[in-house]
């Protein structure tokens, strides 16, 4: 057991014993060594289940939505991306910061569970980081009540827009062919939406019968789904990469989100969502000097 795991258990135990929170949401070990999975601790004696290791990739922020109406506080462990997810939910008026207790964990980056599984336990150390971690710009929590351990530097990571540079070079026909192939795989399980902290609408447009989108799983509908979701989270996507990690069909969903983020930066100035819940949203405000090339 690493020192931080001991520390997080101690913190969780104290919070529950003093009844400062009624639940602690963290991670526990899952089926295999490469699975760390969300756990909900309500009794001090259960804190031994909590762990903090290199497979805690699941963003816990979204899970807090189930507890927004309960009495009392809920504590949550937050990496950089979970913390930005929390800010997302606060800014979208979904959760109340006053009802959460955030335990910050500086994150060295999580291992790619799929690759680790292929390499096996003995060689798992050689597994690369999750794609979402390679492009992470904020490994340290941007909001917390208590921080466990020292802040980590942003090191050895890829430029978050590197992957889309190649896509941008494609002709429109090539782009269409590329994205058609990707979204032809989509099975419309909505895992990308359901893990996404920015997808927090009370009722999703895609759950309103066939009002906006047919259920038939086919090229046009799948692409419509992917594009509409990308635009609905434009300027609000916290780039946690959960959509892409959760996708069972390995669709490079983050490329859509990064492309939009890059365009927003170019049009309205550099912006990263989920850093400041009070600040203006680039697509949620109007300035007279905004570019309007389409006019």
């Amino acid at each position: 057991m690493n020192a931080q795991t001991a520390k997080i258990r101690e913190i969780a135990k104290e919070l529950l014993e003093k009844q400062e929170v009624q639940m602690v949401i963290g991670w526990e070990k899952g089926t295999f060594f490469y699975n760390s999975t969300p756990v909900f601790i309500t009794k001090p004696e259960d804190v031994e289940r909590l762990i903090w290791d290199e497979y805690c990739a699941v963003n816990l922020a979204k899970l807090l939505m189930d507890y927004r109406h309960v009495e009392g506080k809920v504590a949550l462990f937050v990496k950089g991306c979970d913390a930005r997810g929390i800010n997302r939910l606060i800014q979208d008026k979904v959760i109340d910061r006053g009802k959460t207790y955030l335990i910050g964990l500086p994150c060295p980056g999580m291992k790619d569970a799929g690759k680790a599984a292929e390499l096996g336990k003995d060689k798992a150390g050689e597994a690369p980081l999750e794609a979402k971690c390679l492009r992470c710009t904020h490994p340290n929590p941007v909001v917390y009540d208590v921080l466990v351990g020292e802040e980590v530097p942003v090191t050895g990571k890829e430029d978050r827009f590197a992957r889309i540079a190649d896509l941008e070079k494609m002709s429109p026909d090539e782009k269409f062919e590329y994205w058609s192939k990707q979204y032809d795989k989509c099975i419309r399980c909505y895992a990308c939406r359901n893990v996404c902290p920015a997808c927090n609408c009370r009722e999703c447009v895609f759950d309103q019968g066939q009002t906006w989108l047919e259920r038939a799983v086919e090229r046009g509908g799948n692409q419509f789904y992917g594009l509409v979701r990308a635009f609905h989270v434009a300027g609000r996507c916290i780039e946690c990469g959960e959509c892409e990690r959760a996708c069972p069909m390995d669709i490079p969903i983050m490329d859509l989100h990064h492309k939009i983020a890059k365009d927003i930066n170019e049009l309205f100035g550099d912006y990263e969502a989920g850093l400041d819940p009070e600040g203006p949203l680039p697509l949620g405000m109007y300035k007279t000097e905004d570019p309007e090339e389409f006019m």
Binding site: F40, D66, I187, N194, E214
Partner: peptide, 28 residues
Amino acid sequence: AEICRKCINCGTCTYLCPTCYCFDILNR
């Protein structure tokens, strides 16, 4: 109530399951 907590209610398990057979009937 315990088992369901971490489920995000996506359809991955059901759509990849070889025995899940539930379907909807729709008009186009």
